[in-house]
Design a protein around this nucleic acid. Sequence first.
DNA 1: TGTATACACGCTGTATACAGTTCGGTCCGG
DNA 2: CCGGACCGAACTGTATACAGCGTGTATACA
Lengths: 230, 230
Amino acid sequence: MTAPTGKAEAVYRQLRAQIEAGELVPGTPLGEVALVERTGASRTPVREALRRLAAAGLVDLAPRQAARVSRISMQSVRDLFAFRALLEPEAMRSAAQAVGTDGDLRTALTRLRADLSRIGRRAASPARSTAFYALADRFDWTVVGATRNEHLRRTIAELRPHTARLRNLSHADPRRIEVSVVEHLRMVDALLAGDADEAASACTDHLARSVDTILATLLSGPGAGLDVIT
Amino acid sequence: MTAPTGKAEAVYRQLRAQIEAGELVPGTPLGEVALVERTGASRTPVREALRRLAAAGLVDLAPRQAARVSRISMQSVRDLFAFRALLEPEAMRSAAQAVGTDGDLRTALTRLRADLSRIGRRAASPARSTAFYALADRFDWTVVGATRNEHLRRTIAELRPHTARLRNLSHADPRRIEVSVVEHLRMVDALLAGDADEAASACTDHLARSVDTILATLLSGPGAGLDVIT
DNA sequence: TGTATACACGCTGTATACAGTTCGGTCCGG
DNA sequence: CCGGACCGAACTGTATACAGCGTGTATACA
């Protein structure tokens, strides 16, 4: 789409990664000059990166005021998942239809299924959690890539950083992973079977369970420095 | 949201309005220096405006190359309306539920209904067409404003310029307006009745008929300088 | 005459200087 | 001790200068 090179792009990716990872806590001020010193770029690329982050909803921008990493509220979490529940089942339907003609998609899903069931048999551990999350991301990317509708694809992609951030800020119950593996297997199987309705339904269920887990985690114990608005 | 003042905002609004109005034909190059001379602002605000327009999908941005007003393809039109058909019925459902508690929304819809039926009785004329389009915009804005979900509201709002541009680039059959008035009345009535299903269904039907009309118009006769990719 | 190459122009990407405004701290008065 | 107003610092918004790259053209050659 845009240039893979360029300092503005580099600053944008760096900041987005740090926000996604939770290293930059919500509410952290991101002054332009401070970022200049931290990234080595000048104010112009920094400024562009901040504007793009603001468009993505990752930072809040007030006039004549330093940008801040966007805050998270219970309502924003609910809104995010309600919106995803509107879009992603449709993407699943699209992918379920495409799996019949797109050979690459089918092989990708088949590999994903194998890796997923292998993960499911491993013993619980932090390493397994991160491995599973990487796999879940791979699945999401695969489905997004199979989505033909440009608007749908772009919008889902824009939502991903928010989800990733929530995942990294709220350390969910490790037992949740057991269930999530099963849910992902159900989605992959539905896609491989070309069953659009089942795929959409599985996606909806998965999102509903995810938001419940995240909200419960945020309510019970906000992690170190996590700034959550009730 | 952002600053109502500021040159970047002014340039952005001016360019967006001209693109929406169809004055800037798809493919028109928008060099930064040319825009500096045309708008009176310097390159920094111009640059920010162009980036925002690119994020909205109204201009295409290639590295080291002048920005161009985004082109329109048949597929992009279909994608746009398919995406709207996914989002807007949900917004209608939300509005139908809110009409019970939100007094302002109810009065706005009531006034809209009166104006709409008055327009319906007027004789066909260019003036009536523009008056109806203004009314349709008011309706859309009302529904968007009643949408609680932040993501849903923002995404629908971002799609509006595209629709407006299509409307202004493809001069549809004036008789289409007769039907559109009826469709809008059906939507408004469903909302006032609080009937979410009927409102959503009416919205879906309206969008389906709209895309048919637009595609037919684009196929038959591309207007002056209209650059459409088959 | 067709093609390949070299040159020149223009454009974006980047850096930096300047002006206006807002926010926070401090000092004074009650 | 508390409240308010003034002052200073820092930040964003804007303007402009410089460098690198791509594109298009003109020319020389096969």
